[in-house]
């Protein structure tokens, strides 16, 4: 029986991940310098019977809580649910198919600060590739990986922390309101959260001293996944852009998606209205101290063909 509250909660959504969850938990605990300070909080996001999270009996299982959702929440709402059940002061948000570098918890405790989100290095388990946070692509509202490591000796601000490795104090996560549950299922949650964090006055700092090795889907699996998720992803991009972009760019964004995804745009626009995207924009304008323009200036952001981003 646990007598000491954990300081770090490893938070992950899992939908049909099965044994991969147990391997992730085992890695997080096995690689930790102080495993007694770690708990895992898993949201079983309406997995099928064969795909439910499986964690080995013993120490791993004692340090793991699995919350079952009978509805498909999607990654954002699932992470929020896991965070609500977390006991740790720090949240290490990751995916259900990752491996942790040795001593990760020591580094996280050393580097975190009240208004700081850590972005950790993401490795591909099948190659030498590494990602060092992401950057925003506007007006599409997608992202690109940073593949060059940040310069040493500097505080490496990045625009977006990856879903595979985002570390944040639970108090800050709650103050920010977690991930946007107006988005659906998959796509856009992490960049929207990151941009909102920047607008709220937090910073996102990348570290190369913590690495998470991630299982990227093989091409065939990726293609099938995207085919099923595309409408949700189009909607989420539109909602993200409606929430944050200068107003003069919003229609441009919509037309871009209409050109690229003609079979998905109508349903995405209907969802956008039903889920009150403009209300969300107004709410963020009232509550956040900084506009999107501050994010643009900080990172000298240009649009995806190199043009300046307008102020309004």
């Amino acid at each position: 029986m646990r007598t000491v509250a954990p300081t770090i909660s490893v938070v992950l959504p899992a939908r049909d991940e099965g044994d991969r969850v147990g391997a992730t938990v085992a890695s997080a605990l096995g690689a930790a310098a102080e495993p007694d300070g770690i708990e895992a909080v898993v949201v079983d996001d309406c997995s099928s019977a064969d795909g439910r999270p499986r964690v080995a009996a013993g120490a791993d299982r004692r340090r793991t809580r699995i919350i079952r959702s009978e509805l498909h929440l999607g990654v954002g709402a699932a992470r929020n649910l896991a965070a609500r059940h977390a006991h740790g002061r720090l949240l290490f948000i990751t995916d259900a198919h990752t491996r942790f570098s040795d001593g990760w918890d020591h580094e996280v405790r050393r580097l975190i600060a009240p208004s700081r989100i850590l972005s950790v290095t993401v490795r591909d388990r099948a190659s030498a590739w590494r990602g060092h946070g992401c950057r925003l692509v506007v007006p599409h509202m997608g992202t690109r990986w940073n593949t060059a490591p940040p310069a040493t000796g500097t505080r490496a601000h990045v625009q977006i922390a990856s879903s595979a490795g985002t570390v944040v104090q639970r108090a800050l996560f709650e103050r920010l309101g977690g991930y946007d549950e107006g988005m659906v299922h998959y796509g856009g949650f992490e960049p929207e959260f990151s941009v909102r964090a920047w607008r709220a006055g937090a910073e996102i700092v990348h570290t190369t001293t913590v690495e998470v090795t991630h299982r990227f889907k093989p091409e065939a699996e990726c293609t099938a996944f995207l085919a099923a998720a595309r409408t949700a992803m189009v909607h989420n991009c539109l909602r993200f852009g409606t929430a944050h972009l200068p107003e003069s760019m919003i229609l441009e964004m919509v037309r871009l998606h209409a050109l690229e995804y003609p079979d998905h745009i109508r349903e995405a626009l209907v969802m956008l209205e039903q889920r009150s995207a403009w209300g969300r924009r107004a709410e963020l304008a009232r509550s956040l101290p900084h506009g999107f323009a501050s994010f643009v200036r900080r990172f000298a952001l240009l649009d995806q063909i190199g043009r300046p981003v307008p102020e309004v």
Binding site: G131, C134, L226
Partner: peptide, 11 residues
């Protein structure tokens, strides 16, 4: 382009 982006084949 999406949350986890296609860069050098990593999606």
């Amino acid at each position: 382009l999406h949350t986890i982006t296609i860069t050098a084949g990593h999606g």
